[in-house]
Design a protein around this nucleic acid. Sequence first.
DNA 1: GCGGAAGTTTAGCCTGAGCTAACTATTTTG
DNA 2: CAAAATAGTTAGCTCAGGCTAAACTTCCGC
Lengths: 146, 146
Amino acid sequence: MPTKRQETTAHVHSPAIEDYLEQIHNLIEAKGYARVVDIAKNLRISQASVTNMIQRLDAEGYVIYERYRGVIMTDAGRKIGQEIARRHEVLTRLLASFGLDPQTVHEDVEGMEHHISRQTLEVLTLLMEELEGNPELLMKLKRQLG
Amino acid sequence: MPTKRQETTAHVHSPAIEDYLEQIHNLIEAKGYARVVDIAKNLRISQASVTNMIQRLDAEGYVIYERYRGVIMTDAGRKIGQEIARRHEVLTRLLASFGLDPQTVHEDVEGMEHHISRQTLEVLTLLMEELEGNPELLMKLKRQLG
DNA sequence: GCGGAAGTTTAGCCTGAGCTAACTATTTTG
DNA sequence: CAAAATAGTTAGCTCAGGCTAAACTTCCGC
Ligand SMILES: [Mn+2]
Ligand SMILES: [Mn+2]
Ligand SMILES: [Mn+2]
Ligand SMILES: [Mn+2]
Protein backbone atom coordinates (compact mmCIF):
# COMPACT_ATOMS: atom_id res chain seq x y z
CA MET A 1 0.00 0.00 0.00
CA PRO A 2 1.11 3.61 -0.50
CA THR A 3 2.76 5.08 2.57
CA LYS A 4 0.27 7.10 4.54
CA ARG A 5 0.73 10.80 3.83
CA GLN A 6 2.39 12.44 6.83
CA GLU A 7 -0.15 14.97 8.11
CA THR A 8 2.30 17.94 8.33
CA THR A 9 2.40 18.14 12.11
CA ALA A 10 0.96 21.67 12.15
CA HIS A 11 3.62 22.87 14.56
CA VAL A 12 2.00 26.03 15.77
CA HIS A 13 3.78 29.34 16.22
CA SER A 14 2.84 32.45 18.10
CA PRO A 15 1.02 35.21 16.24
CA ALA A 16 4.09 37.38 16.81
CA ILE A 17 6.43 34.95 15.06
CA GLU A 18 3.99 34.54 12.22
CA ASP A 19 3.72 38.29 11.75
CA TYR A 20 7.47 38.66 11.55
CA LEU A 21 7.86 35.86 9.02
CA GLU A 22 4.96 37.15 6.93
CA GLN A 23 6.45 40.61 6.92
CA ILE A 24 9.97 39.46 6.08
CA HIS A 25 8.54 37.36 3.28
CA ASN A 26 6.53 40.28 1.89
CA LEU A 27 9.51 42.61 2.01
CA ILE A 28 11.77 40.14 0.23
CA GLU A 29 9.08 39.56 -2.41
CA ALA A 30 8.64 43.28 -2.92
CA LYS A 31 12.15 44.66 -2.71
CA GLY A 32 14.53 41.73 -2.66
CA TYR A 33 15.67 42.25 0.89
CA ALA A 34 14.31 42.80 4.40
CA ARG A 35 15.81 45.35 6.73
CA VAL A 36 15.23 45.82 10.43
CA VAL A 37 13.98 49.35 9.98
CA ASP A 38 11.33 48.33 7.45
CA ILE A 39 10.12 45.36 9.44
CA ALA A 40 9.81 47.63 12.45
CA LYS A 41 7.91 50.25 10.50
CA ASN A 42 5.47 47.76 9.02
CA LEU A 43 4.79 45.97 12.27
CA ARG A 44 4.79 49.23 14.23
CA ILE A 45 7.23 48.04 16.84
CA SER A 46 10.67 49.29 17.84
CA GLN A 47 13.77 48.38 15.90
CA ALA A 48 15.26 46.92 19.05
CA SER A 49 12.40 44.48 19.33
CA VAL A 50 12.88 43.45 15.72
CA THR A 51 16.58 42.79 16.18
CA ASN A 52 15.76 40.71 19.17
CA MET A 53 13.18 38.59 17.43
CA ILE A 54 15.34 38.14 14.34
CA GLN A 55 17.99 36.59 16.54
CA ARG A 56 15.41 34.20 17.89
CA LEU A 57 14.16 33.36 14.41
CA ASP A 58 17.74 32.61 13.39
CA ALA A 59 18.32 30.44 16.43
CA GLU A 60 15.15 28.52 15.63
CA GLY A 61 16.07 28.04 12.01
CA TYR A 62 13.56 30.27 10.26
CA VAL A 63 15.96 32.88 8.95
CA ILE A 64 19.68 33.34 8.47
CA TYR A 65 20.95 36.52 9.88
CA GLU A 66 24.27 38.32 9.82
CA ARG A 67 24.81 41.19 12.25
CA TYR A 68 24.35 44.58 10.61
CA ARG A 69 23.65 42.84 7.31
CA GLY A 70 20.43 41.43 6.05
CA VAL A 71 18.09 38.61 6.82
CA ILE A 72 17.30 35.81 4.45
CA MET A 73 14.74 33.08 4.97
CA THR A 74 15.32 29.37 5.27
CA ASP A 75 12.92 27.00 3.56
CA ALA A 76 11.15 26.49 6.88
CA GLY A 77 10.75 30.22 7.39
CA ARG A 78 9.63 30.91 3.86
CA LYS A 79 7.03 28.18 4.11
CA ILE A 80 5.43 29.83 7.12
CA GLY A 81 5.72 33.32 5.69
CA GLN A 82 4.00 32.26 2.49
CA GLU A 83 1.31 30.44 4.36
CA ILE A 84 0.39 33.44 6.48
CA ALA A 85 0.52 35.75 3.50
CA ARG A 86 -1.93 33.42 1.78
CA ARG A 87 -4.34 33.49 4.71
CA HIS A 88 -4.01 37.23 4.84
CA GLU A 89 -4.92 37.52 1.19
CA VAL A 90 -7.93 35.23 1.31
CA LEU A 91 -9.38 36.92 4.37
CA THR A 92 -8.81 40.34 2.91
CA ARG A 93 -10.44 39.52 -0.41
CA LEU A 94 -13.39 37.92 1.33
CA LEU A 95 -14.06 40.81 3.69
CA ALA A 96 -13.21 43.55 1.24
CA SER A 97 -15.71 42.20 -1.26
CA PHE A 98 -18.45 43.28 1.14
CA GLY A 99 -17.16 46.81 1.08
CA LEU A 100 -15.98 46.97 4.68
CA ASP A 101 -13.78 49.86 5.70
CA PRO A 102 -10.18 48.90 4.75
CA GLN A 103 -8.82 49.84 8.14
CA THR A 104 -11.28 47.50 9.87
CA VAL A 105 -10.59 44.76 7.37
CA HIS A 106 -6.91 45.08 8.04
CA GLU A 107 -7.28 44.90 11.80
CA ASP A 108 -9.52 41.87 11.68
CA VAL A 109 -7.35 40.11 9.14
CA GLU A 110 -4.17 40.74 11.13
CA GLY A 111 -5.73 38.92 14.05
CA MET A 112 -7.71 36.19 12.33
CA GLU A 113 -4.91 35.06 10.03
CA HIS A 114 -3.19 33.34 12.94
CA HIS A 115 -6.11 31.15 13.88
CA ILE A 116 -7.14 29.45 10.67
CA SER A 117 -6.59 25.76 10.06
CA ARG A 118 -6.01 24.40 6.62
CA GLN A 119 -9.62 23.19 6.45
CA THR A 120 -11.04 26.54 7.45
CA LEU A 121 -8.80 28.23 4.90
CA GLU A 122 -10.27 25.97 2.25
CA VAL A 123 -13.79 26.90 3.28
CA LEU A 124 -13.04 30.60 3.23
CA THR A 125 -11.28 30.33 -0.10
CA LEU A 126 -14.33 28.62 -1.50
CA LEU A 127 -16.62 31.34 -0.19
CA MET A 128 -14.37 34.02 -1.58
CA GLU A 129 -14.30 32.37 -5.00
CA GLU A 130 -18.03 31.82 -5.04
CA LEU A 131 -18.70 35.46 -4.27
CA GLU A 132 -16.17 36.67 -6.81
CA GLY A 133 -17.76 34.51 -9.48
CA ASN A 134 -21.36 35.19 -8.50
CA PRO A 135 -21.95 38.93 -8.32
CA GLU A 136 -25.72 38.55 -7.97
CA LEU A 137 -25.27 36.63 -4.73
CA LEU A 138 -22.76 39.17 -3.48
CA MET A 139 -25.09 42.03 -4.37
CA LYS A 140 -27.99 40.38 -2.60
CA LEU A 141 -25.95 39.93 0.56
CA LYS A 142 -24.54 43.44 0.42
CA ARG A 143 -28.06 44.80 0.15
CA GLN A 144 -28.99 42.94 3.33
CA LEU A 145 -26.00 44.53 5.00
CA GLY A 146 -27.43 47.99 4.38
CA MET B 1 -29.69 68.03 14.96
CA PRO B 2 -29.70 64.70 16.82
CA THR B 3 -26.55 64.11 18.85
CA LYS B 4 -24.16 61.98 16.88
CA ARG B 5 -24.37 58.38 18.02
CA GLN B 6 -21.32 57.64 20.19
CA GLU B 7 -19.46 54.90 18.29
CA THR B 8 -19.05 52.53 21.28
CA THR B 9 -15.34 53.09 21.75
CA ALA B 10 -14.54 49.44 21.05
CA HIS B 11 -12.25 49.26 24.06
CA VAL B 12 -10.34 46.17 23.21
CA HIS B 13 -9.48 43.43 25.69
CA SER B 14 -6.96 40.65 25.56
CA PRO B 15 -8.09 37.28 24.24
CA ALA B 16 -7.43 35.90 27.72
CA ILE B 17 -9.84 38.33 29.38
CA GLU B 18 -12.45 37.67 26.74
CA ASP B 19 -12.14 33.92 27.24
CA TYR B 20 -12.67 34.24 30.99
CA LEU B 21 -15.70 36.48 30.61
CA GLU B 22 -17.19 34.26 27.92
CA GLN B 23 -16.70 31.22 30.11
CA ILE B 24 -18.11 32.83 33.24
CA HIS B 25 -21.08 33.97 31.22
CA ASN B 26 -21.67 30.50 29.81
CA LEU B 27 -21.43 28.87 33.23
CA ILE B 28 -23.87 31.30 34.78
CA GLU B 29 -26.28 30.78 31.87
CA ALA B 30 -26.03 27.03 32.20
CA LYS B 31 -25.92 26.44 35.94
CA GLY B 32 -26.66 29.71 37.63
CA TYR B 33 -23.21 30.17 39.09
CA ALA B 34 -19.56 30.12 38.08
CA ARG B 35 -16.93 28.45 40.23
CA VAL B 36 -13.19 28.67 40.00
CA VAL B 37 -12.81 24.96 39.52
CA ASP B 38 -15.20 24.88 36.55
CA ILE B 39 -13.71 27.91 34.86
CA ALA B 40 -10.30 26.31 35.23
CA LYS B 41 -11.50 23.02 33.81
CA ASN B 42 -13.18 24.62 30.81
CA LEU B 43 -10.27 26.88 29.95
CA ARG B 44 -7.74 24.15 30.78
CA ILE B 45 -5.68 26.31 33.06
CA SER B 46 -4.80 26.00 36.73
CA GLN B 47 -7.18 27.09 39.48
CA ALA B 48 -4.51 29.44 40.77
CA SER B 49 -4.45 31.27 37.47
CA VAL B 50 -8.22 31.58 37.54
CA THR B 51 -8.26 33.03 41.03
CA ASN B 52 -5.65 35.47 39.96
CA MET B 53 -7.51 36.65 36.88
CA ILE B 54 -10.83 36.85 38.71
CA GLN B 55 -9.26 39.30 41.11
CA ARG B 56 -8.13 41.39 38.17
CA LEU B 57 -11.55 41.22 36.56
CA ASP B 58 -13.06 42.41 39.82
CA ALA B 59 -10.57 45.26 40.11
CA GLU B 60 -11.38 46.31 36.57
CA GLY B 61 -15.10 46.21 37.15
CA TYR B 62 -16.12 43.22 35.06
CA VAL B 63 -17.14 40.89 37.88
CA ILE B 64 -17.90 41.08 41.56
CA TYR B 65 -16.07 38.54 43.56
CA GLU B 66 -16.07 37.49 47.18
CA ARG B 67 -13.21 35.35 48.43
CA TYR B 68 -14.16 31.69 48.68
CA ARG B 69 -17.63 32.55 47.41
CA GLY B 70 -18.81 32.98 43.87
CA VAL B 71 -18.36 35.37 41.02
CA ILE B 72 -21.12 37.43 39.52
CA MET B 73 -20.88 39.65 36.48
CA THR B 74 -21.34 43.37 36.28
CA ASP B 75 -23.20 44.83 33.33
CA ALA B 76 -19.88 45.67 31.71
CA GLY B 77 -18.65 42.12 32.14
CA ARG B 78 -21.85 40.51 30.97
CA LYS B 79 -21.87 42.67 27.87
CA ILE B 80 -18.44 41.40 26.85
CA GLY B 81 -19.21 37.81 27.78
CA GLN B 82 -22.37 37.82 25.68
CA GLU B 83 -20.61 39.44 22.78
CA ILE B 84 -17.87 36.83 22.65
CA ALA B 85 -20.37 34.02 23.08
CA ARG B 86 -22.25 35.42 20.09
CA ARG B 87 -19.14 35.50 17.93
CA HIS B 88 -18.33 31.99 19.06
CA GLU B 89 -21.75 30.80 18.00
CA VAL B 90 -21.76 32.43 14.59
CA LEU B 91 -18.30 31.18 13.72
CA THR B 92 -19.14 27.70 14.90
CA ARG B 93 -22.35 27.46 12.92
CA LEU B 94 -20.66 28.80 9.81
CA LEU B 95 -17.74 26.40 9.90
CA ALA B 96 -19.69 23.42 11.16
CA SER B 97 -22.14 23.71 8.28
CA PHE B 98 -19.31 22.68 5.97
CA GLY B 99 -18.83 19.50 7.96
CA LEU B 100 -15.40 20.32 9.36
CA ASP B 101 -14.07 18.20 12.18
CA PRO B 102 -15.56 19.60 15.44
CA GLN B 103 -12.20 19.67 17.17
CA THR B 104 -10.72 21.80 14.39
CA VAL B 105 -13.76 24.06 14.34
CA HIS B 106 -13.41 24.59 18.04
CA GLU B 107 -9.72 25.45 17.88
CA ASP B 108 -10.21 27.92 15.05
CA VAL B 109 -13.25 29.50 16.66
CA GLU B 110 -11.51 29.91 20.01
CA GLY B 111 -8.85 31.97 18.29
CA MET B 112 -10.85 33.84 15.68
CA GLU B 113 -13.59 34.98 18.04
CA HIS B 114 -11.24 37.58 19.54
CA HIS B 115 -10.47 39.31 16.28
CA ILE B 116 -13.82 40.08 14.74
CA SER B 117 -15.17 43.60 14.45
CA ARG B 118 -18.87 44.30 14.53
CA GLN B 119 -18.87 44.74 10.76
CA THR B 120 -17.12 41.46 10.13
CA LEU B 121 -19.49 39.73 12.50
CA GLU B 122 -22.38 41.06 10.44
CA VAL B 123 -20.84 39.71 7.25
CA LEU B 124 -20.24 36.31 8.76
CA THR B 125 -23.73 36.21 10.22
CA LEU B 126 -25.12 36.96 6.80
CA LEU B 127 -23.08 34.19 5.20
CA MET B 128 -24.17 31.77 7.88
CA GLU B 129 -27.83 32.64 7.38
CA GLU B 130 -27.58 32.45 3.62
CA LEU B 131 -26.06 28.99 3.77
CA GLU B 132 -28.56 27.80 6.34
CA GLY B 133 -31.42 29.01 4.15
CA ASN B 134 -29.96 27.88 0.86
CA PRO B 135 -29.02 24.21 1.07
CA GLU B 136 -28.37 23.96 -2.68
CA LEU B 137 -25.61 26.53 -2.43
CA LEU B 138 -24.17 24.83 0.62
CA MET B 139 -24.26 21.47 -1.11
CA LYS B 140 -22.55 22.85 -4.18
CA LEU B 141 -19.75 24.32 -2.08
CA LYS B 142 -19.37 21.19 0.01
CA ARG B 143 -19.03 19.16 -3.16
CA GLN B 144 -16.17 21.42 -4.24
CA LEU B 145 -14.53 20.84 -0.87
CA GLY B 146 -14.40 17.06 -1.38
C1' DG C 1 38.64 59.92 3.57
C1' DC C 2 35.86 62.05 7.29
C1' DG C 3 32.00 63.25 9.88
C1' DG C 4 27.35 63.10 10.56
C1' DA C 5 23.00 60.59 9.59
C1' DA C 6 20.79 56.46 9.41
C1' DG C 7 20.54 51.91 10.81
C1' DT C 8 21.51 48.21 14.18
C1' DT C 9 22.55 46.14 18.49
C1' DT C 10 22.92 45.67 23.54
C1' DA C 11 21.51 46.22 28.16
C1' DG C 12 18.15 46.56 31.33
C1' DC C 13 13.48 47.01 32.31
C1' DC C 14 8.25 45.91 32.39
C1' DT C 15 3.71 43.60 31.95
C1' DG C 16 0.51 39.82 30.97
C1' DA C 17 -0.50 35.46 31.77
C1' DG C 18 0.65 31.23 32.76
C1' DC C 19 2.71 27.50 36.33
C1' DT C 20 3.66 24.67 41.00
C1' DA C 21 3.81 24.11 45.90
C1' DA C 22 2.07 25.10 50.14
C1' DC C 23 -1.47 26.82 52.75
C1' DT C 24 -6.40 27.92 54.10
C1' DA C 25 -11.43 27.52 53.85
C1' DT C 26 -15.56 24.97 52.93
C1' DT C 27 -18.24 20.97 52.16
C1' DT C 28 -19.24 16.24 52.58
C1' DT C 29 -19.53 12.10 54.92
C1' DG C 30 -18.90 8.18 58.28
C1' DC D 1 -19.27 16.48 64.79
C1' DA D 2 -14.68 15.37 63.32
C1' DA D 3 -11.85 14.39 59.66
C1' DA D 4 -11.21 13.74 54.87
C1' DA D 5 -12.02 15.50 50.43
C1' DT D 6 -12.69 19.27 47.65
C1' DA D 7 -12.24 24.05 46.51
C1' DG D 8 -9.84 28.36 46.67
C1' DT D 9 -5.85 31.36 47.69
C1' DT D 10 -1.08 33.02 48.14
C1' DA D 11 3.71 33.25 47.17
C1' DG D 12 7.15 32.97 44.16
C1' DC D 13 8.60 31.62 39.58
C1' DT D 14 8.94 31.64 34.39
C1' DC D 15 8.62 33.14 29.66
C1' DA D 16 7.16 35.87 25.56
C1' DG D 17 7.36 39.94 23.70
C1' DG D 18 7.21 44.49 24.12
C1' DC D 19 9.87 49.17 25.48
C1' DT D 20 13.82 53.06 26.01
C1' DA D 21 18.50 54.66 26.24
C1' DA D 22 22.92 54.26 24.92
C1' DA D 23 26.52 52.30 22.17
C1' DC D 24 28.11 50.70 17.94
C1' DT D 25 28.42 50.09 12.67
C1' DT D 26 27.57 51.37 8.05
C1' DC D 27 26.73 54.54 4.48
C1' DC D 28 26.93 58.92 2.03
C1' DG D 29 27.85 63.64 0.95
C1' DC D 30 31.22 66.85 1.14
MN1 LIG E 1 -1.14 39.24 11.92
MN1 LIG F 1 -1.03 39.70 7.90
MN1 LIG G 1 -11.30 32.12 22.71
MN1 LIG H 1 -15.14 30.83 22.67
